[in-house]
Amino acid sequence: MLENSPFVARLGDATKTYGRGPGAVHALQGVSVDFTAHTFTAIMGPSGSGKSTLLQVAAGLEPPSSGVVELAGRDLSGLSETALTELRREHVGFVFQSFNLMPTLTVAQNVELPLRLAGRRAGRGRVQEIVERVGLGGRIRHRPFELSGGERQRVAIARALICKPAVTFADEPTGALDTHVAAEVLALLRESVREGGQTVVMVTHDPVAAASAQRVLFLADGRLVDELVAPTAELVAETLTDLAERVRACPV
């Protein structure tokens, strides 16, 4: 439940600094952004721009150094680690480039794992339903080593969606996949938004992947510097090129 908020996640003037003194790294510098329910947002920027840090802070995996972070209608400041863990289990799904599947578990067991960790059981047929939805109905008893990279990522998406999260955070979900398989994975993420009512926030370096989203946010040096709505791959690539030139012209 989102406590009547139209936003599943939001950052208000959020900063994140690692270290102190002259060697401090300012990964986020005054970032304010809202992620509205039932939308697909991509986050892009040069290496070291703060993309993954933004994702981790928005997901409650890293606390901000200052500013406000809200997730599923809850202000994260002051929450204990136990409360944060419970909030993420209830409202957040994760998809990573490395899949993060348990090698000894079957597809069905991997998909059901978040529910079991939360002390819940999947409804009758729910695991089968969601595994079929990602196109792996015939491989439900297979283990990860018996699957291709694309199939493993499909399992990871099914696992992220099994709890019907308010938001799914995806960090380079197609980075280890070939072009054809990556397109299938992106189609699944789009479908989860369009038909499943999910919200997806995805970090990517690929303009084609970013063009699957409804909007693209661009970061540089820990700041939000641009945004595209209804992007195309060509426009995303052009914006990235312009951004790289601006960063070279005005180094920190």
Rank of each mutant, 00 (worst) to 15 (best):
L101R: 07
S52P: 06
D171K: 08
T41N: 07
E146P: 05
V57G: 04
L28W: 01
C163Y: 00
E3H: 14
L219H: 09
H205A: 11
S80I: 00
V69N: 05
H180A: 14
V203E: 12
A213R: 08
G150E: 13
K164M: 01
A14T: 13
T106H: 10
F145H: 14
T36I: 13
T85M: 02
T106M: 09
E62F: 05
A59N: 03
R10F: 03
R120Q: 15
G137E: 07
D13H: 11
S5K: 05
T239P: 03
P144R: 08
L11V: 12
R124V: 13
A42K: 04
A210Y: 10
L71V: 09
I43C: 08
D178I: 09
D206L: 12
V131P: 04
D178M: 10
E81W: 00
A83L: 01
D171M: 08
G196R: 03
S77G: 13
P251V: 12
A42W: 09
Q29Y: 00
A211R: 07
A170Q: 09
E238W: 02
Q153S: 12
V247A: 10
P64F: 04
A237G: 13
V8L: 09
T85I: 00
A160F: 04
R215K: 14
L61C: 02
T232C: 00
Q56N: 15
H26S: 00
A24C: 07
V203Q: 12
R126S: 10
A158G: 06
V229Y: 03
E81K: 01
R120C: 04
V247G: 02
L224K: 14
G125E: 07
R116H: 03
A176G: 08
P207F: 11
L113G: 02
T199E: 07
V229I: 08
V200A: 10
L115G: 01
R88Y: 02
R215V: 05
H26T: 00
S212V: 00
V185M: 04
R89V: 00
G73T: 07
G30P: 01
G73A: 09
R139F: 14
H180K: 13
G150Y: 13
G137S: 06
L101D: 06
S98E: 15
T168D: 06
T41V: 15
R246I: 02
L161E: 05
T82H: 08
M102H: 09
E227T: 15
A14G: 06
A37M: 12
R133D: 13
A37T: 13
D206K: 11
L105V: 02
G135V: 08
G123E: 15
D171F: 06
R124H: 13
A156S: 15
L177H: 11
Q109K: 14
V155P: 10
E146G: 14
A166R: 14
A182V: 11
F96V: 07
V185D: 07
A233S: 15
G149S: 14
F35D: 04
A118S: 14
V33N: 02
V68Y: 01
F40Q: 06
V95E: 04
V229N: 10
S65H: 04
F35Q: 08
P207Y: 12
S77Y: 02
L55T: 08
T232F: 01
G93W: 02
V200Q: 10
L54P: 04
R126H: 13
S77V: 01
